[in-house]
Design a protein around this nucleic acid. Structure first.
Lengths: 358, 358
DNA sequence: CTGTTAGCGCATTCAG
DNA sequence: CTGAATGCGCTAACAG
């Protein structure tokens, strides 16, 4: 910017060195430098050493932007997060970042406050503009999955993180239905005659899956499922729903769709004087770090988010391979996905129904 | 990739259109296209309209990578988060993303699991490689601030988010000391003879600032501060420390450095049979969404993270202006920063000391 | 007001 | 095994 007299035959001081500077110092052409950087095999060890020396001396670092311009690759993947700071999605996000770094990818994230179709589309465009090689969508609501399914990404492969393999060609996640069943069956096995469900917002696939798992389990023992209570993932909604729940003396057990809502439920039950677990059993979902320290410590379903992150990146790498370029076109034939099994964590918020010994 | 016969005079089908394609369609030079895209003023409305039409027809989108190569700007800012999923930093992170988008920036984030000097340096390099125009560091521990202070960023301005203006040239954050004082003074005003402090990890500036605020307040009323209990931000550590705390009958009030630890403290107190707030008062810090639904609802200090995010981006934009290029060289002369005042949220976990009417 | 000429920093043909 | 040309898609001077 400020050089008025460029000196073409020598590295200009104070400027970040470019490949040509290295070449000059090593006494080779700039292609040769390019070759050692990209680990080309056919190079005399001596020249390679000279070049590497020069690189070190100059503190040269390849310009990723220039490289991306010519290769049309960027070694970066995009992440679209559509969560509002929820613990689960945030944790997955971090796990994905870590896994991506491990795999040598840079990651660019877009956090969407609202999850309208337009915002989502804009995020994809944004990421495409930056030449991302693949995209991971976290906490996909229905709109997000639509975009992924319809391949409205200009050929950029998308891996969706959710608990239903049937909606997008590439999916990874935790088996939500299985988790919900574990929770519900645990409650049932304790002798509870009915198990209520405090559900998450039904435009989230995870919420629907947990509800489905609960319903299946209840029906499996010949019961007619109660009308579920619908929350929005927050402790506040859990509290409101918990107040209603506390009044229904015939109910003695509830499976709450996440731990945050469970906190609200616990509070409402406590306020109403219904002792947990003596009179009432509660199971959550997520195993947030605080769950073991609530009053009482919460029995819940743990999801291995690190595994999800790893799996997401692995899957994306497969999806990015050229032979899968049109994975979406096969209407599901080409589907690949894997769900991780969750785990029930037993704590003090569940107990046999009063007056029973199960 | 697969075109074997490029047709130089016409837009190749199936390829994403470039500027030249638009120019051809509009019957102008590609430079003119560049001008309408960059909102140049001197353009005949007619030509501009023709070009815009062509852009729309072709669905043309400028190639950001190519643009970045020549302008050395990228319209993206980097965010380095060194939190392990803590609620505060994560929330700030989202707020920053939102504010950056609003300001027209793309953001690339790097989440560091470990916060070693090397990792931090690597993250900075990573971001520089991608031509970020500025960097925001969240939840800076001491190593992070060192890097920012010593300008080891190759000229890329860095804004640090923390509660101490004196450590880095550009800082934004919440006034931690003020928040801690509000919490402690509230407890003192309730008539408690002593206020204990459960502190965060002392290599975090926030933790030290909250401790300092507590200590100041205690000393201000002529008391000798007790030896603080040191935790690590987690509910688990809060629980362990809370157990020790419960045994000390002379203590009736505690200011806990964050809400997560406070959850553990609440649980330990409850287990030990020390009723909150009747026998014991507890104040937290953060106001996580669950705080109002704990047993009992937690009195705490709320930080306006959205404001922090906005301020961070504003500050970064100032720092990125050319005249500030060497802000770090002035050894503090050039310092700019602003702290946002926190707010005490009164709930049910605090009450006058037993047998008093304050 | 618009077109022409360069060149950003690199990888990719092709020659030797 | 290495070097010389060519161009990725765009913006920045300069002309006109």
């Amino acid at each position: 910017m400020t050089d008025t007299a460029p000196r073409p035959t020598t590295a200009r001081a104070g400027r970040t060195p470019v490949m040509a500077d290295v070449a000059r110092l090593a006494g080779v052409s700039h292609q040769t430098v390019s070759r050692v950087i990209n680990g080309h095999s056919s190079l005399r060890p001596a020249t390679r050493a000279r070049v590497e020396d020069a690189i070190r001396q100059l503190g040269y670092r390849p310009n990723t932007v220039a490289r991306a311009l010519v290769t049309k690759r960027s070694a970066t993947i995009g992440v679209i997060a559509t969560n509002g700071g929820l613990w689960g999605p945030s944790t997955v996000h971090r796990a994905i970042q870590a896994a991506a770094r491990e795999a040598g990818y840079f990651v660019s994230s877009v956090n969407l406050p609202d999850v309208t179709r337009e915002d989502l589309a804009a995020a994809v465009e944004h990421l495409r503009d930056h030449n991302v090689e693949g995209i991971v969508m976290i906490a996909a609501n229905d709109e997000a999955v639509d975009i992924a399914r319809h391949q409205e990404t200009g050929g950029v492969p998308v891996v969706v993180v959710e608990g239903d393999l049937s909606r997008a060609p590439w999916t990874v996640g935790v088996d939500q239905v299985a988790g919900a069943r574990m929770a519900t069956e645990h409650l049932l096995s304790l002798g509870h005659e009915q198990v209520m469900h405090v559900a998450g917002p039904q435009h989230w696939e995870e919420a629907r899956a947990r509800l489905a798992g609960w319903r299946e389990s209840v029906q499996a023992v010949g019961l007619r499922p109660l009308e579920p209570l619908l929350g929005d993932w927050t402790a506040e909604s859990g509290y409101a729903l918990g107040q209603a729940l506390a009044k229904r003396r015939e109910v003695t057990a509830v499976f709450v769709a996440n731990d945050h809502m469970a906190i609200g439920v616990l509070r409402a039950l406590w306020e109403a004087g219904r002792s947990v677990p003596d009179e009432f059993s509660v199971v959550g979902f997520d195993d947030i770090p605080e769950s073991g320290f609530l009053i009482p410590p919460l029995t819940t379903v743990r999801q291995d988010f690190d595994a999800v992150g790893l799996l997401a990146i692995e899957t994306l790498q497969v999806a990015m391979r050229p032979e899968h370029e049109n994975a979406g076109d096969h209407g599901g034939e080409n589907r690949r996905g894997r769900l991780i099994k969750p785990q029930l964590v037993l704590r003090a918020s569940t107990a046999p129904v009063p007056g029973e010994r199960s």
